[in-house]
Design a protein around this nucleic acid. Structure first.
Length: 989
RNA sequence: GCCCUGGUGGUGGAACUGGUAGACACGCAGGACUUAAAAUCCUGUUCGCCGAAAAAGCGAGUGCGGGUUCGAUUCCCGCCUGGGGCACCA
């Protein structure tokens, strides 16, 4: 009986499904374990070999944990809302719902063939109303909450209203606009609209006007993490800044908790670093500089008084350098510019601002020129009264801090370059630490030229200055974050509608009973007017609550919000829905979420570092604050799988021009390809190679026409499908059939009778013809081979190019495993005989190795462990049932189909997943060394470790004769000596 | 520029806390079985030297140059280099 995976695998996949073997239920008697994959976006291209890498890893972990007695939750679903489906709909006229459904069923079919143990009953799709009902519901929770800074948590907005009624906003600084202040009496006097506008400035999900990343080509705004180098992440379209009414998430209120929360979870250092940088916390001080009155006199002498009250507020992390301030720089958008610019400088300033406006973000990022303009105004250093010129420059960003800085050229590289460029004299406050040629950003220098700070270490001066500033009332301690509030609306169709009705400029939330607010079924997805989104074109939808029958009190005549939510809305909480996917009363029952709790292991790529992984952390924290769940970090541990790159293959085509009597001769159909080595020689200017190529071209052309004279030619590198290349050798027959026979008559210049292709590692993509489809591999070698091979390829967290050639080795291993049970001629060969000591040793070494390797996600070495084990058992001709059964259980997570089949063949009933995991017994693993107590200089020292085959005489001799040992005998304590093969190799002290 | 991460045979990669570097696999070479092929099995395979060959031996060797240590792929310092992230954040 042979290893017939084609029969075995579908058989078990069906059985697993029919028996509902992966169904999970709440079981308080067992410890729980939650393994989750980042759910995929169901693109039309289907899976390539890179996708399953993480899924295989999570499948191994979940089967392993289940065998170890855990109640394992391992679900799968689809992130189904998003731009590509809608773009596809616009281009092909297929409704996104349709194409998404088709894509999902393809995905499921592909995943099933690999044999994953998902509980499909728990599948979620973010585009289903039964799912997005709760996305909308959570949105409303955020909308109806604010961040209480005293309590450092989200609190219902009704609490805030109570506080306003009692004390105005004295105890609650307005996060949206900190210049808003009012008393209880004023609050009560406001109109409803005024009150709602104020509340909007507090809500965790809020609507406001702001600079957003607008992508014209996609017709929508994008979040910061969706913009890469000034172009959209999807599609690479240009992105510009635009002021628009938008929904936002007030994620900035969570900045500090998102930062400190990182200490409680196991993310890789790199990942934590990325999030830390994105949050970008810095602490320093805000300092207010008085602007000098004199600069206004020239223009309007009567402005002197007003000018004295003008102040420039800057943010700095280095208040200790205040005596080194040589100029101020404000962002070109700064509102003070208009007020402080002198008459002489007016023209120059206006010209400069026009110039800055003409530059796009991309240009600014691409070429960092030093540009700027003097305003004519001066600020006064509060400590020494020095006059400091105020400049404008684009290197100061309006959106960060106060949009203005104090420039200290001796301590800041950018300030130094600016000072140099505009010949501004530089004050040195750090003595020898500044050499005049470049800035030194040290904190350890001793201050000089710094008034009352002279002689102080900079690091210590920071506090001193802040205290002094606060005492003088001209500055205060301040923490800033780079992170911005997240843009939360898209002007697209294919997303969750906002459960918000607008009337008279007030946003009214829908009632819970009105959810889900479903997307209308429409034919057209073209954008609405003024970036409003396609839903604005459907009045019968937008006004559905405007009827007299509308249950929404007070909103009759209102209009629904026409934006939709972004892709990350649904993915921010999906891990909660898997726990209780069919609940229509709640997004997830509290007792259930208390049981499953955090995701114990989350597996996915690094690309979501600052998007999804940050948003879902914030949503979790908010839901926790509001008492809906019992934990405030969603993912206890994150494992990043590496990216599988494509290994592209190239052919080298000759393109030529020619002279001919027959100008119309069809030589455009002549395709000539030159093997890689000859191309290399050609590129190295080899004369023989050139002659060879010319002769080849001449001969090839001659087949078509004799009257052609070659004029010129060049060699062009083009991608060829990796699936028709064996290693680097092109399969000529397959190549001729490729692309519907376009190259059927191609001519080749061979190299030892072979055509050798060029190789390069690139991202895997259809256009590069370097994708490998898992289906074909599963068909050829089986799912078990495929799974083990993907793991065997290398560490899961490492990126590597795909290479199919080693798959045979893994396949051979599985066949060898099979032969431990079945012989081609004799049939079954296993016996009930008791295993020998040596066989038990092999087994228990393997148990230990597999357990250790699986626990630390070292799947590649685990696969090696299986290979060693099977090789050794083969060598021992071991067919003992007792050994084999244990081995099957060990291998189940890695190769579930073959394990189930052989398990059943051995006469077991039921799934191997319900077997009990073998326990490692050290007694079976013979020790490789023994420890002897050793006495040196009459004192008992710790111990010696020596190889078994060393005799005691040898040991004595070595200890006495070895000079190293003599040395330690003189004093240092001796821990152990290590002997291998009777030879001492080392001593540890 | 800053931060993170890697660099080991012809190839993918092992070596958990410093302890026989190259496990396991691919590829390659040779052999067995077979009319033949496939499949399977066996042997060899870091490089160099010494050897007709075998056995055995010697030397070098984990990107480069130093250091710590009895001992370094592992720790420290300085470079070179691949990959990823951030990029005027004051």
């Amino acid at each position: 009986m042979e290893y017939n995976f084609t029969a075995i695998e579908p058989k078990w996949q069906d059985k697993w499904k029919d028996d509902g073997i992966y169904k999970v239920n709440l079981d308080p008697s067992k410890p729980k374990y939650y393994v989750l994959d980042m759910f995929p976006y169901p693109s039309g291209a289907g899976l390539h070999v890179g996708h399953p890498l993480g899924y295989i890893a999570s499948d191994i972990v979940s089967r392993f944990k289940r065998l170890k007695g855990f109640n394992v939750l391992h679900p799968m679903g689809f992130d189904a809302f998003g731009l590509p489906a809608e773009q596809y709909a616009i281009e092909h006229g297929i409704h996104p719902k349709k194409s998404t459904e088709t894509n999902i069923s393809n995905f499921i079919a592909q995943l099933t063939k690999i044999g994953f143990c998902y509980d499909w009953d728990r599948e979620v799709r973010t585009c289903e109303p039964s799912y997005y009902k709760w996305t909308q519901w959570i949105f409303l929770q955020l909308f109806n909450s604010f961040y209480n800074r005293q309590q450092q948590k989200a609190v219902p907005i009704t609490e805030l209203i109570k506080a306003f009624d009692a004390n105005g906003n004295a105890n609650h600084i307005c996060p949206g606009d900190n210049s808003i202040h009012f008393t209880a009496a004023e609050w009560k006097a406001y109109t409803e609209k005024e009150q709602q506008d104020i509340l909007m400035n507090y809500r965790l999900a809020f609507c406001g006007y702001g600079e957003v990343n607008w992508c014209e080509a996609l017709g929508t705004v994008l979040a910061n993490d969706e913009v890469v180098n000034g172009v959209s992440e999807r599609g690479g379209h240009p992105v510009v800044k635009k002021k628009l009414r938008q929904w936002y998430l007030r994620i900035t209120e969570y900045a500090d908790r998102l930062l400190t929360g990182l200490e409680t979870i196991e993310f890789s250092e790199a990942m934590k670093e990325m999030q830390t940088n994105w949050i970008g916390k810095s602490s320093g001080a805000e300092i207010s500089f008085k602007l000098q009155a004199a600069s206004y006199k020239q223009e309007q002498s009567n402005l002197q008084l007003a000018a004295c009250s003008l102040e420039l507020l800057v943010y700095t992390t280095r208040p200790d350098t205040i005596f080194g301030v040589d100029f101020m720089v404000v962002a070109p958008e700064h509102e003070l510019i208009e007020k402080i610019t002198t008459a002489e400088q007016k023209e120059a300033v206006e010209a400069y601002i026009t110039y800055v406006k003409s530059r796009s973000d991309r240009e600014r990022q691409a070429e960092k020129k030093i540009t700027g303009c003097f305003t004519g105004a001066y600020a006064i250093n509060p400590f020494d009264g020095r006059e400091i010129p105020v400049w404008i420059s684009e290197y100061v960003l309006a959106g960060y801090g106060t949009g203005a800085i104090m420039a200290v050229p001796c301590g800041d590289e950018r300030d130094f370059k600016f000072a140099n460029h505009f010949n501004i004299p530089v004050t040195n406050i750090i003595g020898d630490a500044f050499d005049g040629t470049e800035a030194n950003a040290t904190k350890d220098a001793i201050l000089s030229n710094s008034g009352f700070l002279d002689g102080m270490k900079m690091r210590d001066a920071i506090e001193v200055v802040i205290n002094k500033l606060e005492e003088m009332g001209i500055g205060k301690r301040k923490v800033n974050y780079k992170m911005r509030d997240a843009a939360f609306s898209r002007q697209r169709y294919w997303g969750e509608p906002f459960p918000i009705v607008w009337k008279d400029g007030i946003a009214y939330p829908l009632e819970e009973t009105q959810l889900p607010l479903e997307l209308p079924d429409v034919e057209s997805y073209s954008p609405g007017p003024e970036g409003e989104g396609p839903l604005a074109n459907i009045p019968e939808w937008t006004t559905q609550f405007a009827t007299p029958q509308s249950p929404l009190q007070g909103v009759r005549g209102g209009m629904l919000e026409t934006n939709t939510m972004p892709g990350y809305a649904g993915s921010s909480w999906y891990f909660l829905r898997y726990m209780d996917p069919h609940n229509d009363k709640n997004f997830c029952d509290r007792t259930i979420s208390d049981y499953w709790n955090q995701v114990d292991l989350y597996i996915g790529g690094t690309e979501h570092a600052v998007g999804h992984l940050l948003y879902s952390r914030m949503w979790t924290k908010a839901l926790y604050d509001l008492g809906h769940i019992g934990f405030d970090e969603p993912f206890r541990k994150l494992l990043n799988q590496g990216m599988i790159q494509g290994s592209s293959r190239f052919v080298y085509r000759v393109v030529f021009t020619y002279d001919s009597e027959f100008k119309n001769a069809p030589l455009t159909n002549v395709f000539m390809f030159i093997s890689k080595n000859t191309v290399d020689e050609y590129n190295n200017n080899s004369v023989t190679a050139k002659e060879k190529i010319q002769e080849f071209i001449a001969n090839s052309i001659a087949k078509y026409s004799e009257s052609v004279k070659l004029r010129n030619y060049q060699i062009i590198e083009t991608h060829v499908d990796v699936n028709i290349v064996d290693g680097v050798e092109l399969d000529i027959e397959a190549f001729k059939k490729w692309r519907n026979g376009e190259y059927a008559n191609a001519e080749f210049l061979f190299e030892d009778g072979k055509y050798i292709c060029g190789v390069e590692v690139e991202k895997m993509s259809k256009s590069k013809f370097n994708t490998v489809n898992p289906d074909t591999l599963v068909e050829k070698f089986g799912a078990d081979t495929f799974r083990m091979y993907e793991m065997f390829l290398g560490p899961v967290d490492q990126s590597k190019p795909w290479d199919t050639k080693g798959i045979e080795g893994v396949h051979r291993f599985l066949k060898k495993l099979w032969r431990l049970f079945f012989d081609e001629t004799k049939g079954k060969v296993w016996t009930d005989a008791a295993p020998t000591a040596e066989e038990l040793k092999v087994l228990h070494r393997t148990i230990k190795k597999i357990e250790d390797d699986t626990e630390r996600y070292s799947f590649n070495t685990a696969v090696s462990g299986f290979m060693i084990c099977v090789n050794e058992l083969s060598d021992l001709k071991c067919h003992k049932k007792e050994i084999l059964e244990s081995l099957l259980i060990l291998i189940t997570p890695y190769a579930p189909h073959i394990a189930e089949e052989l398990w059943q063949q051995l006469g077991n009933s039921g799934s191997i997943l319900d077997a009990s995991y073998p326990v490692f017994n050290a007694a079976h693993v013979t020790e490789t060394s023994k420890e002897y107590p050793v006495s040196i200089n009459g004192k008992m020292r710790t111990s010696l470790t020596i190889a078994l085959d060393a005799t005691e005489d040898q040991v004595k001799e070595l200890v006495l004769t070895n000079e190293l040992v003599q040395k330690w005998m003189e004093g240092k304590p001796l821990k152990k000596l290590i002997f291998v093969k009777g030879k001492m190799i080392n001593v540890v002290v």
